[in-house]
Design a protein around this nucleic acid. Sequence first.
DNA 1: TCTGATCGCGCG
DNA 2: AAAGCGCGCGATCAGA
Length: 558
Amino acid sequence: MYALLAHAPDGSAVSVQLLAPDGSPAAPAKTVALNGLADVVRVLEERHRPRWVWDRAPHWYPGLLAANVRVERCHDLALCQSILLNAESAAAGGYRQRAIPVPADDGPLPAAQAQASLFERPPAGSGWDQATTMTELMSQMAAIASSTHPARLTLLLAAESACALVAAEMQYEGIPWREDLHRRLLNDLLGPEPAGHGRPAKMDALAGALRTALDAPALNPDSPQDLMRALHRAGIEAKSTRSWELAEFKHPAIEPLLAYRKLSRLFTTNGWAWLEQWVHDGRFHSEYVVGGVVSGRWASRGGGALQIPKQIRGAACAEPGHKFIVADAAQLEPRVLAALAQDSAMAAAGRDKDLYAGIAAQGFGGERAMAKVALLGAIYGSTSGESGRLMPQLTRMYPRAVGFVEDAARAGERGDTVSTRLGRSTPPVSPEWREGQRSSSAEEPRRAESAARSRGRFTRNFVVQGTAAEWACCWLAELRRRLRALVPDSGAADGTPRPELVFFLHDEVMVHCPDALVDAVSDIVHESSRAATRLLFGDIPLEFPVNVTVVESYADAK
DNA sequence: TCTGATCGCGCG
DNA sequence: AAAGCGCGCGATCAGA
């Protein structure tokens, strides 16, 4: 059963249409005023558990969540369209010609905005009407049905849509964040909060020490050019002002400079201004952008949710009566590679929990760090340095796995598209790229070769990173489904504490969990990872182990 | 004075 | 130790 949500001709009303699984109308379309939508959705959800079809989840779902309405599943037309437009497995069906451009993302509906914070985007404008929504849904169904791998594509689109729900719910819940602890940390490291636009005391002191050490009284340490000139005058012949490079030099200026850099980063990115802007009522609310990365990974917008430095994770604390369950998939990308390539030797190395240790034992004299560098080098396309030197050894040990990424790289260099396990494909190369390959071989061969190798590294990594993103997406979807079964919406409505997914970072999830449910949720995290593995790869002789820690504070995970 | 590119660095 | 993949963000810099 599907339920279409679309805009009625009157901008303040919504059209709701129930559809049978074959797409035929199961009831007459209803028109509902915007402020009555949540109640209608609630009733239909309880009665039919439909798959909600909408132009994009971030347009509709925040408003429903604000009205305390959650849904089981959806079909996010915008997300599915962006996958189908590139998907090689669906290329033959003519979907590309029929696809209707999705209207720009102009934020949640006005009804949701009334309850939203001051920082939301400007008022929503256009959205699809019912006929358009219906037409696009039918086009997408046809594209899936006529694809070479309908089951995989169906799974990918369902999981991606589930993630759209997860992302909206995570943004709504927010990460529990102790502002007082964060402020204490800032005070300890930087000194008291500076008034106006001044620098914190400890940064000021370090800047002074730096100016003295370089004999440059007017130096602005934030200016790379300024800094470079001063360093050269002091006899420090650095090629850039990157910290790791400067650390090579012995000079009295280096220590205060590196210390200044560290504090400056904290102050500008996660200082008092960040707290002010992103933390409200004890929660850090960020916006997640599902499928925001070409590979299918999530991105985020505002607040840098996917780059929370380890330094400040102590401020993320579970609320009284709760714990954080932090789970991360161990060596996800290398394991994905072993599964994709069906490399039984590498799978054997991953029999125990630590794949890198297994590989090290098989051929790197037990040096785990060496095995890790070699394997990541193969996935990233490294040619130089330590990992480049280790490649021949890795190739001897795992010809199938290395051959798999090499094939993906060669395809990319030729300008071909490559695809993930479930069928997400790289965008086609631009005409300029192809023209560059064709024409410039005579006069500027190096440019063309460099562009080809660069794309090779991209496609090499895409198949692994993208399939890992699919595994994580399925994991998240399975996790959400099981958590909902553990504490149904009907139970949560009366105030029963419920475990909430509050954070997701590529291969890591965090659940804010009532104490009494910690064991049950930990089990669910593991079950969900096994389910994800089976969904992607079927029954394979390779596990995807998950490290689970139960902590009060995010800083204590791992 | 505004805008887009670049640098440097945080995360996986 | 510092290269190979994917990002977001803030400050500076270059050019209009």
